[in-house]
Design a protein around this nucleic acid. Structure first.
Lengths: 335, 335
DNA sequence: TTGTAAGCGTTATCAA
DNA sequence: TTGATAACGCTTACAA
């Protein structure tokens, strides 16, 4: 209605003919206010279109009613991997149902300090750090500073004090590899994830356990960085070994995308010649030719759960330090 | 390092043996400080791990260094439509390259007031409102309050004062319909978007112009709400008319997804019996069977551009009120 | 039940 | 170049 500067509590008090304290009490639903005062203040608030200044409020109350979602990742990965978008959506929806707001921080290598400064400046009451790809050492030391929850088990030293949401990546690797074994594959290779995050080594361990259980060799291992290009390069190295294989577990759908192209170049058909399974039921796994048997991760739930844990901790409730979310195998016959 | 309360400017001043003012000057890169003072203060800041309190800062400076991205949408649509995730990514990346932070607000029907209160409480220096699907009347009145930019031309009365980023939806509808005409289609229907947002009527107008230019009838029109279910229902109504058609322009890929199923049920093959084109080059358009000829919208650029406009306006620069972004036709032969 | 006054951690004004 | 001092808009004892 007006282009004026925003109304202040003081102005409301004047308009309602009461003191600032009374206005504050009404705003904060204090029980000890007469109905008349409440009415007068409410009318003035509506009349002036007043909204309490958030900065002033949090300055004195030491509460921001804001949560941070930090994604420490490179620009390229942030855009190419649907995982992030999905987790963000889950978190944003969850937050939207509360009185909290959400700050989204993309911490590129370029400016790592910015997100740290944000968290140390008292801008949020808690932070969720999504360590899907990259390392997280740079946040672990904030653990004592404010409630923190990680998406994916942190590998840093402080990791065993940290709260985190994750899936059982060892089980993920083992179960999906079992699909290859059940499909009759006798020589199974893997393209594993990077070693700087738990999901990499864990899925690799699952793969190894599955093979050891049936006495198959576990020597056909190549690692990559969860990108299509990395997956392609790893597949190339695998082929270059000159050892024939009839099964392949690729630790992420994006890497599988890259690997598929290389297999095709070498005349290896999936699943006729090589059974292929992966992790992540994203557009890559669905749009691949052929569509891939994969492990679906509860991406939305990861986002939602991280927020729930943060809210509970802020509310002073006791929460389990580790939350494991269930995964689902999507069988599309590519094994 | 410490579990102590955060260090304050006052503590830094004491540690450095200077006044609060000097510390403040150092923090804000004031030119008039002796190198010795800068050194002492910098040392104290590092020593104490000090970060300026953001609330206090913005209380006095009237600047938050925060931008809001508001998405007024239902939960269902927010999750199902890849458009949002993509725009969010574009905006988040752009913001991450600046000193600003980003607040992500999902304004569900449930609590429309929350986002408004946020914006009126001085929590952000500017806001981007993404009106991809729903109406935006509830934000138009904030135009005088803080810099605002809309994603998609606002339909409200205040619309002609508003800043917005959009694509030329009339051209989009016309050009993609032309593909059907060029493919030899003689009787072309359309499933249009909802009337409460500009993209709906605009794309419909484009379709109509294309047909009128070649003297084809423009009576086969059904509207839906940009969802797969809505698209399916509209397609059903179209078929139920009993009027044969050999071309169909569906105004969004999600609706096309629903429409495709209905066509198939009625034994209509795409593109053998009916040529089908749509808008949005998302996973739906790519994963559909057959893959669809479509208009790709610059979703990342929409997010980025909205932020850029906000930043420019906050910096006091003059900016065009309307920014049109180019689209691209992706020809997959489904016409 | 209400009002007065102090103070949250900064920046900004003004002397020195 | 530096340092007191007064805001910024709110909450919160404490008094009345």
């Amino acid at each position: 209605m007006t282009g004026d500067a925003a109304a202040t509590l003081k102005m409301v008090a004047a308009a309602a003919g009461v003191s600032k304290s009374t206005v504050s009490r009404v705003i904060n639903d204090s029980p000890n206010v007469t109905p008349e005062a409440v009415a007068a203040v409410s009318a003035a608030i509506k009349e002036l279109g007043y909204s309490p200044n958030r900065a002033a409020r949090s300055l004195v109350s030491r509460r921001t009613n804001n949560l941070a979602l930090v994604i420490p990742e490179t620009t390229a990965k942030f855009f190419s991997d649907p995982y992030f978008a999905s987790v963000i959506q889950g978190a944003a929806m969850c937050v939207s149902e509360t009185e909290f707001t959400l700050s989204l921080l993309i911490a590129t290598e370029h400016d790592l300090g910015k997100s740290r400064r944000f968290l140390r400046s008292g801008s949020a009451d808690g932070a969720a750090v999504l360590s899907h790809h990259s390392d997280d050492t740079s946040y672990a030391d904030l653990v004592g500073t404010l409630p923190l929850v990680f998406g994916g088990r942190p590998m840093s030293a402080e990791g065993d004090r940290a709260y985190y949401v994750d899936v059982d990546n060892v089980a993920v690797g083992r179960q999906i590899t079992d699909r290859l074994i059940v499909a009759g594959r006798r020589r199974i290779a893997t393209i594993g994830g990077p070693t700087n995050m738990a999901a990499g080594p864990d899925r690799l361990t699952g793969w190894r356990l599955a093979l050891e259980a049936v006495g198959q060799p576990t020597d056909l291992v190549e690692l990559a960085d969860f990108t299509p290009a990395g997956g392609a390069a790893a597949a190339q190295r695998l082929v270059d070994r000159g050892v024939a294989f009839d099964g392949l577990f690729v630790a992420s759908a994006q890497m599988a995308m890259g690997a598929l192209g290389v297999l095709r170049e070498h005349g290896l058909r999936v699943p006729a010649d090589v059974g292929l399974v992966t992790v992540d039921n994203d557009a890559f796994a669905q749009a691949a030719d052929p569509q891939l048997t994969t492990v679906e991760q509860p991406t939305l739930a990861v986002g939602r759960t991280m927020i729930e844990i943060l809210l509970a901790r802020i509310a002073g409730e006791r929460v389990e330090r580790v939350t494991m979310l269930p995964t689902t195998i999507i069988d599309r016959g590519s094994q």
